[in-house]
């Protein structure tokens, strides 16, 4: 096993048959009978059952059992409820759309700027060492405490939300891109030099492709932080979207409604992160060393 990092393919261990390409697992009936499939289902069932039972014995204001959450979800999707203090009905779809909009636009800006800065820091080692403390400091600052400043600089609206998403998501992309660029294989770089590649060609054809797995790992971390950014923005600035809805309904003790929004956020995060994870494992065969373990 220790020699696996030297193996050219660097394929991860696992039940895959050797040599075959890692294709997506196909559905088969026999998989349903395997414990790794049915155990989570059973546990989820038990969990929901216990939750339902707890809901019947505790104060309905404090605790919403799954059945009431499901009812609330149906109402929210079909008719919508009046929220944010106005009479207008708001549906779950429109809330989700508001959140997704800020999330994806902010994330896209993060990817562009993060890659640019990451490449710059990856290529210039001295610059990276000098800039590192600042990057670390921004990374380590909890974004909630920055909200007073963000309100002053960007107001309470869309731009402020975008900034919160950007601030959270860009830094992991920068860090991982820089690591990926720096870990470019020196032998390949030499080959590139010897065939007379210019710096730009080298970057485009040798170094960037090698950094892809690192960048993808960074994107996965960034996606989680982008989610947090958009929720902070919606909860602590203008109350909008799913985040605002959670806070508004939570404060009015309509727990079931708040829970529906929490679920949607959870699913949104899971889908975003696991789709990036899938993309990552597609590229995993390139990778020669373990990526950063940050989760």
């Amino acid at each position: 096993m220790t020699s696996s990092r030297l193996a050219p393919s660097g394929k991860s261990k696992g039940p895959k048959s050797s040599g075959s390409k890692p294709i997506g697992r196909r559905f088969s009936f026999r998989r349903l009978l395997q414990p790794e499939f049915y155990l989570p289902v059973v546990v989820t069932g038990v969990f929901l059952g216990a939750w339902e039972w707890l809901g019947t014995i505790t104060d309905p204001i404090l605790f919403a059992p799954p059945s009431r959450i499901a009812e609330a979800a149906v109402v929210l999707i079909r008719d919508g409820v009046p929220a944010f203090g106005s009479k207008r009905l708001v549906t779950l779809q429109s809330l989700t759309w508001t959140t997704l909009n800020g999330l994806l636009v902010g994330f896209a800006i993060s990817i562009i700027t993060g890659l640019l800065i990451g490449v710059l820091l990856g290529r210039h080692k001295t610059l990276a060492r000098v800039a590192e403390p600042y990057v670390d400091a921004i990374y380590a600052t909890p974004r909630v405490v920055l909200t007073p400043l963000i309100v002053l600089w960007f107001g309470l609206g869309y731009n402020a939300r975008l900034f919160l998403v950007w601030l959270g998501a860009t830094i992991p992309i920068i860090i991982n891109t820089a690591i990926g660029i720096r870990n470019a294989r020196p032998d390949l770089e030499e080959v590139g030099h010897s065939v007379g590649m210019s710096e730009r060609q080298l970057l485009r054809h040798v170094i960037m492709p090698g950094a892809v797995p690192y960048v993808l790992a960074g994107l996965r971390v960034a996606a989680g932080r982008a989610m947090i950014g958009i929720v902070i923005g919606e909860m602590f600035l203008n109350l909008v979207g799913l985040g605002g809805f959670i806070r508004f309904e939570g404060a009015r003790l309509r727990t079931a409604n708040a829970f529906v929004a929490v679920m949607v956020l959870g699913i949104m995060g899971s889908v975003l992160i696991s789709s990036l994870g899938l993309l990552e494992s597609k590229f995993a065969s390139w990778k020669k060393e373990e990526r950063s373990r940050e989760t």
Binding site: P40, V43, T44, F47, V144, G224, M227, I228, V231, I232, M235, L242, G243, I246, R247, E249, G250, A251, T255, A258, F259, A261, V262, L265, G266, G269, S270, I273
Partner: peptide, 16 residues
């Protein structure tokens, strides 16, 4: 189950 809960941002659960 744990991975799913990990994906829900803490901040969203705050009111609860």
């Amino acid at each position: 189950l744990m991975s799913f809960i990990y994906c829900v941002p803490l901040i969203a659960l705050l009111p609860l």
